[in-house]
Nucleic acid binder design. Structure first.
Ligand SMILES: [Mn+2]
Ligand SMILES: [Mn+2]
Ligand SMILES: [Zn+2]
Ligand SMILES: [Zn+2]
Lengths: 137, 137
DNA sequence: GACATACTTTAGAACTATTATAAACTAGGA
DNA sequence: TCCTAGTTTATAATAGTTCTAAAGTATGTC
């Protein structure tokens, strides 16, 4: 994904392509494989890879803006370090979770299929379904 | 479950049956259906139902002790309110989660069966598998 | 029952992830 | 260039949880 495409992605989401947003978007979206990260780990990566300054609040703001625009997912998992995980894979999918390394690994949606599933409680509908497979060594 | 049984449960876990632990254990374990709760909600219930005082730290200490003893589970879900859920159902099972009410509902292990499952990444083993079915209204 | 001691509770401080604030800065249109 | 709404920033505030160390208690021994 080249620079112009990043700019388009931001602009078409109603987000002004500021220096910080462009750097974060380049870092997150110019890659082949899924990237799972925390705010802290992203901050460190950005400090290493760029000369731009990122206030912590800007990282949070940007990630939430990207999430709201549908460019990022937040993983609803509570790891041992009590931080939110973000996920560049925005398709429906599942995860392996290694609690020793706090690492997430994608499982494609079609790698898990069900024989039997319960129906939603009365008056409610199923929005989506997430499987977390906890790993040990 | 009567008083003596509660005392046994505590003692056989190496936990002295203090006033606070006995009250919490009675409140949590003398019931038929699964109880999902947060530290905050438990604190409120205890204040309403008993005359015993519970320092916040004691509630945390006690829940962690019960968890360590295998009498409670912690649900590794990050809800919108960033609090831990505890679960009196200590069997392997799954959950519906209603993010609007922050409510968990049990799904028995045998209500979900799989056609297809991925194998664990190299060098790792599957510890367990949790399904969370997100609900909407 | 009194005593000793390890375990437990407690109030409050500390910690940590995240969000709010409000002042300075900037992208983009006129 | 100028204006303005949108954005970044440093810092304070918030909230869930854990830590501290002093006071209290359960339990074994005499
Ligand atoms: Mn740098
Ligand atoms: Mn009371
Ligand atoms: Zn993922
Ligand atoms: Zn449950």
């Amino acid at each position: 994904m080249k620079k112009t495409s990043i700019l388009n992605k931001l602009r078409s989401s109603g987000l002004r392509p500021t220096k910080q947003r462009v750097e974060i978007a380049k870092f997150l979206f110019n890659r082949d494989k899924t990237f799972h990260f925390t705010v802290e780990s992203l901050g460190k990566h950005l400090a290493k890879k760029t000369t731009t300054k990122f206030a912590l609040a800007t990282i949070y703001n940007t990630l939430h803006a990207f999430k709201k625009a549908g460019h990022l997912n937040e993983v609803h998992l509570r790891g041992k370090n009590n931080t939110t995980y973000f996920d560049t894979n925005i398709s429906n999918h599942h995860h392996f979770y290694d609690s020793e390394t706090s690492e997430l690994i994608d499982i494609n949606d079609n790698e898990i299929t069900f024989d039997k599933l319960p129906k939603a409680p009365n008056g409610k509908t199923i929005k989506n379904l997430e499987v977390i497979i906890n790993l040990k060594n």
